[in-house]
Design a protein around this nucleic acid. Sequence first.
DNA 1: GGCTACATATAGACAGCCTATGTATTCAAG
DNA 2: CTTGAATACATAGGCTGTCTATATGTAGCC
Lengths: 109, 109
Amino acid sequence: MKADTVRGHLDGMILAVVQDEPLHGYGIAEALRAQSDGALDLPTGTLYPALRRLERLGYLRSSWSTVDGRKRRTYELTRSGQAELSARQEDWQEVSRVIGTILRTRTAT
Amino acid sequence: MKADTVRGHLDGMILAVVQDEPLHGYGIAEALRAQSDGALDLPTGTLYPALRRLERLGYLRSSWSTVDGRKRRTYELTRSGQAELSARQEDWQEVSRVIGTILRTRTAT
DNA sequence: GGCTACATATAGACAGCCTATGTATTCAAG
DNA sequence: CTTGAATACATAGGCTGTCTATATGTAGCC
């Protein structure tokens, strides 16, 4: 499954997994892969720019640490990010309803 | 609701309404607006290029006619377009499941 | 020494939306 | 009789978030 098919909703999904617990980029990718049963496997060229963007927008806050000799940047959800997540969740309700309704097979063929 | 939020799934929705009955561009816009309870109101700069693209890809076939003194281009679904629609519907099932699962509020907060 | 997993990041391309604008007809209101 | 709204199609150029490819570095195993 291409991230292209979830375009515009990836931000919301990232905020959602970070809400559960602060995670570093690699961990976010793992969480999304796990929670989608392997369907959503983000290329790093998609994920990392998205994270920087979400931080720039004030929805995430990051801090560096070193674990087992490897540097990692851990992201946590800000107050503003929580509000954004709620908005995205509501957006999704409508989007999902609209596309679902229209795409649903009508013909009994 | 911006068409941007349904990005990548607009093609499927267009094919779906045309499957019901052949329609001209303006009629497709009306059908999508009606079936989404007014939520999806496509700008012409989005719809018309999309229709030409779908025809170029062989999913739609068009023909000109004049109704009440106005020219209209009517689109109908091709065999290939029906297959594409089926594929899009299946895609949507997965996308919807994945985003829905991840975005669904987990916190009982 | 080489492979895999872990970990982050940038560069440049590309597709599909966006807004703005243009043309043309019909019909009702003023 | 002209102005405006609805009908009808279309293009130009911009923007944003994906994409692929590439880069750098550590840890641990074979």
